[in-house]
Design a protein around this nucleic acid. Sequence first.
DNA 1: CGAACGCTTGAACCCTGTCAACTCAAGTGG
DNA 2: CCACTTGAGTTGACAGGGTTCAAGCGTTCG
Lengths: 240, 240
Amino acid sequence: MRTALRSERPDSHFEDIRGLHLFSEMSEESFLTLMRGSYVQNFPPQVELVTEGEQSDFLHVLVDGSVEMLSSWNGRETVMATVRPISTFILAATIRDAPYLMSAQTLEKSRIVLIPSEDVRDVFEEDVNFARSIIAELAQCYRSVVKNIKDLKLRTSLERLANYLLREQHRQKAGDSFDLPIDKRRLASRLGMTPENLSRAFKNLQGYGVEVRGGRITITDPAELERFAKPDPLIDDKSA
Amino acid sequence: MRTALRSERPDSHFEDIRGLHLFSEMSEESFLTLMRGSYVQNFPPQVELVTEGEQSDFLHVLVDGSVEMLSSWNGRETVMATVRPISTFILAATIRDAPYLMSAQTLEKSRIVLIPSEDVRDVFEEDVNFARSIIAELAQCYRSVVKNIKDLKLRTSLERLANYLLREQHRQKAGDSFDLPIDKRRLASRLGMTPENLSRAFKNLQGYGVEVRGGRITITDPAELERFAKPDPLIDDKSA
DNA sequence: CGAACGCTTGAACCCTGTCAACTCAAGTGG
DNA sequence: CCACTTGAGTTGACAGGGTTCAAGCGTTCG
């Protein structure tokens, strides 16, 4: 596991962070300013890092582990996204100095760098390159949620699942076989359906060349699945 | 109608644009650079201004009229948002120099200012204040789509309609009576439901103090409607 | 007046959510 | 080592919400 190996060089995650689009273009000075004010923390699984509705004090950078973004209303709860290393979350709330729209909670043991929101706002006033990176990042985030809405409104749950599987296969650079990266119950919520419904959806996809054994997915007939799923770059491509 | 009054002073819409958060903080010089390169155009209703999937050439500013943002997939189509004066649209695609994720079409006769995307990108490199405004605007847009997702995933269609009515009442600063600003069929699509379903939803809301006659809504029992709708600032507030 | 269109209504069907029972695997403790 | 517990996942039965199809109503507009 990476965390263990890296623990000898306490500053090494700074390099990882520097590698992110968001931080790669800024001046060394600005970057060090941000890092000097930041805290590195290790969290056990199932810890609530930020709470929906509270004020934004830190920009979070997930260096290792995994984090789930959740929202709730009127007693219901839904999974909005899953964050994997290395990436930031709740940038928009940080920028606007506004309350969080989602909660975040660790799924596994996670290492997270906390950068005070105020520092972020101060630094982008000074460093045009950082400002430009923030713009690029926010535009990207925006486009990715718009795609999420299109997925929700234009597709049935079965189609969403089919396209999710194709995306996941591609993301993991897997062959025709790969493991689901999260629980099925969380996946169901992410895709806007109930666990029971997801279970049935998986069964239905058997007819389109998908085999499921536990969390292991095997796509036996990729052409058939694609014909059904009709993936679209304007919904399914992470970048662009 | 404002358009008629203003047509005598052809540059007056520049002042309107200057009043937008996005343009109010930048230097006069930068602003004039943008305006000099821009085109003002009047469009009749039902014109497709931008097409999903095409490359982004202009940042659009709606000065007068109204515009609908649409997305489609696999023969289905959905209303993503309605844009009213004075505001910009497709900022994110402009910034990222990426293909549009939505189409835009005029609902009424509309006056639109087209600012070449390249100019926008050039100017924010130079003008830190403009960059800062873009950041604020994008963060705002991002948060507003996240709210849309929460609305879709956490609420039933009846709850979405109820909250829509409360938001619309508030937006129009209306008393207990106001007109729907768009067709019911478009509203249905916006809320992620069919026209038939919307029709029934309106009937169901009669039980919670809502009267409907044509496009005219009267909220006879605001307390009762709120009790049912449970509006939440983290979903329903436009700002913040 | 008739045509066109948006909206509404009814009926049938299907997808989805709910509730409950059951399986299965992993972990716990006697 | 094995019974017991626990939690996720699956399955079935059922109800409800939502879509679809078809027909009817009401306005507007030529």
